[in-house]
Design a protein around this nucleic acid. Structure first.
Lengths: 153, 153
DNA sequence: TATTGTTATACTCTATAACTATA
DNA sequence: TATAGTTATAGAGTATAACAATA
C-alpha cells in the first residue's frame, strides 16, 4: 500500500510564523490608528512630513513606495481633516508643497506614542537581548536581499 | 529656543521590521503561487483540504478565519480550475463536501515545494539555532497573546 | 426557527494610464 | 516634449447582510 506524500504544512515555515505575528501586530496598530481616524498609509505620510516638512507629493510617493496617484488621494484625505496643507510651489508651479498643520504635528506625536505603546505591548516581554537579536536579523535580511519597499500596509 | 519633540520613527519599532520582512517574504511567496495560477487564500484552502479531505465550506471558513461568503468564492474559483470538487452532503443536504481532485492533490505537492523553496531562500542563511529561536519567539507570542486568525493574506 | 451556502452590495487599498497644467 | 499632480477605471480581497434551500 502506497502512503500519500506528506507536503510541508503551513506551520513548517518560518515565513508563516512571521506573517502570523506580524499580521496581528499590524492589525492592532491599525486599530489604534483607526481610533484616531487615520489609516496606516496616512500615518506613514504624516510621519514623512514630520521629518522633513515641505515635501512634494512625488517625493513622498518615492519615499513611501506608492504611486503619485495614491499619494494624491492620501493628501486629499489629510487635507480634508486639516492635518496637512497643500500649496503650489513658488518657483516651479508644477510642484506642490505638503506641510503638516500644527494639528498635524500634534497628531504625529500622539500617533507615535500609540506606535510605541503597540510595540511595547507585543514585544515588551522579550529580553532586551532578544529584541536586539530579532531586530538585527530583520535588518540583516532587508539589506541582504535588498528589500526595497517600506511597509505601508 | 524650544526644540521640537522627537517622536519615535517607524524604524524604531520591532513591528515595523517584522512587517517589512514579512511583507517581502509573502510577496515573494504570492508571486510563486501566482505563477501557478493560485492566490494565497486559495492555497490555504487547498492545504486544508489536503489534510482532511471532505470538509464542509463552513468548517473550512472557521479554520481559515474567513466568512462563508469568502470561502464560497474561493471554492468557485478552485472548482472552475478543476482542483477541487463540491458535492451536496448525503445525510444533511444543507452541507457540502469539498474534496481535492487528483490534479488538486498534485498541485498541493507542487505548491508545498514552492513554499519550502521560498522559506529556504529567505531564512536558509540563518543558523539552525537562529531559526529555532525565531520560530520559538513567534510561537510564544501566538500563544501568549491568544492570536487567533491564521494568516491567509 | 436555525443553519448552510449563495449572492448583492459596498468598502478599502492600490495600480495603470489617460488627462491638465506647467515648464 | 517632459514632468507634476489628478482622476477615471479597474481589480483584488474581504465583509455584511439579505436570501433560498434544507433541517
Amino acid at each position: 500500500m502506497k502512503k500519500p506524500p506528506k507536503p510541508s504544512a503551513l506551520e513548517d515555515h518560518l515565513g508563516f510564523w512571521l506573517r502570523y505575528v506580524s499580521n496581528h501586530v499590524s492589525q492592532s496598530f491599525g486599530a489604534k490608528m483607526a481610533g484616531q481616524g487615520i489609516s496606516i498609509a496616512e500615518w506613514a505620510l504624516l510621519r514623512v512630513l514630520y521629518d522633513s516638512n515641505a515635501v512634494a507629493p512625488s517625493e513622498a510617493a518615492a519615499r513611501l513606495g506608492l504611486t503619485r496617484g495614491a499619494v494624491s488621494k492620501l493628501t486629499d484625505k489629510l487635507v480634508a481633516k486639516s492635518f496637512i496643507t497643500r500649496k503650489t510651489g513658488e518657483k516651479d508651479r508644477r510642484y506642490q508643497v505638503l506641510s503638516l498643520s500644527s494639528a498635524g504635528r500634534q497628531l504625529v506625536l500622539r500617533l507615535a506614542a500609540l506606535a510605541d505603546e503597540n510595540d511595547a505591548a507585543f514585544f515588551g516581554h522579550l529580553k532586551p537581548a532578544q529584541r536586539a537579536a530579532l531586530k538585527k536579523i530583520m535588518q540583516d535580511m532587508v539589506s541582504r536581499f535588498g528589500l526595497a519597499e517600506i511597509p505601508t500596509e
